Simulated assay, not measured.
Amino acid sequence: MSKIIGEEIGCGHPMWPAVIHGHYASAGVAAALISGALNVHMVFTGHFLGKDKLEGLLKQGRQTREEINMTYKIMRRIEAEELSLDASEIVIASTRQEIEEQWNLYDGFEVMLARKLRARVKRGANCYGRYMPRMVIIPPGVEFGHMIHEFDMEGEEDSHSPASEDPPIWSEIMRFFTNPRKPLILAVARPYPEKNITTLVKAFGECRPLRELANLTLIMGNREAISKMSNMSAAVLTSVLTLIDEYDLYGQVAYPKHHKHSEVLDIYRLAARTKGAFVNVAYFEQFGVTLIEVIISEI
C-alpha cells in the first residue's frame, strides 16, 4: 500500500496516509473501512445530512416515511452517516447550526454529552469507554476567480474586444426557443425532487401571460442519456419532459444536456442580457451556492 501511494504522490518513495477523509455518506463508509484496515485516523464531512433531510421532507407532508425512504434510500444514508460518525476522530461541519441541530439528531452524537466528555478528557478523568468525535467548524466558501467580469477603464464591459463575442453556451440555449428575444427565466438545479423543478415548469405552463412574456431555461446538470441517469434524477427529468409535452411548451423551454463549470457565469449573464430573472424554487437549501453565484453575476 505504501509503495502504491508513494508512486502516486510521493515521487516513488513509500508513503503511508496520515488521515482518511470521507465526504458524504457513501464515501464515509468507504473511509471508515479503509481507516480501520490501515489503522489511520479518519475525518468525515457529511455535507447534506440524511436525518435533517428526512425531517424536512416529513414536515412538508407530501410523502410518508416509507415513500421518502423508497425515493431517497434515506435510511441507508442515515445508517452510513452513523457508521462514519462512530469511526471518525474529527467531523467537519459548516456551521454551529449543523452541529447543534443536525448532528444532534444522530445516535452517535449528543452536544451536551460531547462537551462533558471533552472536559473529562482534558482533566484526565475516566470517560468509561464513551467516545464522540471532535466537531470542527469550517465555514463554506465559493471560489469566484472564474466569475470575474472583464471591464474597460471606464467600468463598462468592452463590447469591441474579441472576448465580448457571445459565449457558445448562449447559442446552445437559444436554439431551443422559437422567439429568443424574450426575457429568460432561469433555474439552475440538479434534477432532484427537493429542487422542485417540476412545479416551476407546471407554473410556467399554466400561466399564459408569462409564457407570452418570457422563455424558461432549466440548467439541470450534465447528462448523456436519461436511461443512464440514476432512477431519482431520471424520474424528475422524465416528469419535466412530460410537462413540456402536456402544456405544449416546445420552443419556450430550454433544457441543454451539457455545460461546463466555466460557463456558469455566462448562463447567468444571458438571463441578465435578456432582462430576465433567476428563480430558486427548491423546498429548502442547505447553503445556496446558486444564490451566491447569481449575486456575483449581477443579474
Results as ranks from 00 to 15, higher is better:
residue 62 R to Q: 08
residue 173 I to E: 11
residue 99 I to G: 07
residue 198 T to V: 11
residue 95 T to Q: 00
residue 292 I to E: 01
residue 140 P to Y: 03
residue 66 E to S: 08
residue 57 L to M: 13
residue 151 F to E: 09
residue 267 I to E: 07
residue 299 I to H: 06
residue 258 H to Y: 15
residue 218 L to C: 02
residue 287 F to Y: 14
residue 150 E to Y: 05
residue 112 M to L: 12
residue 74 I to E: 04
residue 265 L to M: 14
residue 58 L to D: 02
residue 20 I to D: 06
residue 130 R to L: 15
residue 25 A to V: 02
residue 93 A to F: 00
residue 82 E to K: 02
residue 291 L to H: 12
residue 3 K to R: 14
residue 148 I to R: 14
residue 236 V to Q: 09
residue 199 T to F: 09
residue 224 E to A: 12
residue 296 I to T: 12
residue 216 L to I: 00
residue 173 I to T: 06
residue 150 E to S: 14
residue 257 K to P: 02
residue 92 I to R: 03
residue 132 M to G: 08
residue 176 F to G: 01
residue 9 I to S: 02
residue 38 L to P: 00
residue 81 E to A: 03
residue 259 H to I: 10
residue 11 C to I: 09
residue 208 R to Q: 11
residue 166 D to N: 10
residue 223 R to H: 07
residue 35 S to T: 06
residue 50 G to W: 05
residue 78 I to N: 04
residue 201 V to C: 03
residue 21 H to E: 01
residue 42 M to R: 06
residue 141 G to R: 05
residue 54 L to M: 08
residue 47 H to E: 11
residue 31 A to K: 04
residue 179 N to C: 10
residue 233 S to R: 15
residue 212 E to H: 05
residue 263 E to W: 05
residue 45 T to C: 10
residue 224 E to N: 14
residue 21 H to A: 03
residue 16 W to N: 11
residue 197 I to S: 01
residue 117 L to M: 09
residue 19 V to N: 05
residue 50 G to S: 09
residue 180 P to S: 08
residue 78 I to E: 09
residue 197 I to A: 00
residue 16 W to E: 11
residue 40 V to M: 02
residue 118 R to Y: 12
residue 44 F to Y: 15
residue 41 H to C: 10
residue 218 L to R: 06
residue 73 K to A: 12
residue 88 S to W: 03
residue 177 F to Y: 15
residue 22 G to W: 05
residue 134 R to T: 07
residue 183 P to N: 07
residue 211 R to I: 01
residue 9 I to L: 11
residue 129 G to Y: 01
residue 50 G to I: 01
residue 204 F to D: 11
residue 118 R to P: 00
residue 87 A to V: 00
residue 148 I to W: 00
residue 18 A to G: 15
residue 218 L to E: 00
residue 290 T to V: 14
residue 209 P to A: 00
residue 2 S to H: 06
residue 168 P to M: 10
residue 174 M to G: 04
residue 163 A to Q: 15
residue 225 A to S: 12
residue 114 A to D: 08
residue 57 L to H: 07
residue 242 T to I: 04
residue 61 G to I: 05
residue 181 R to D: 15
residue 289 V to R: 01
residue 143 E to W: 03
residue 96 R to F: 14
residue 112 M to K: 14
residue 242 T to G: 06
residue 80 A to Q: 13
residue 61 G to C: 04
residue 57 L to C: 07
residue 26 S to C: 06
residue 16 W to R: 15
residue 156 E to N: 14
residue 218 L to D: 00
residue 220 M to A: 15
residue 57 L to S: 09
residue 94 S to D: 11
residue 6 G to C: 07
residue 83 L to W: 08
residue 153 M to Q: 13
residue 297 S to E: 10
residue 29 V to T: 07
residue 269 R to S: 12
residue 64 T to S: 14
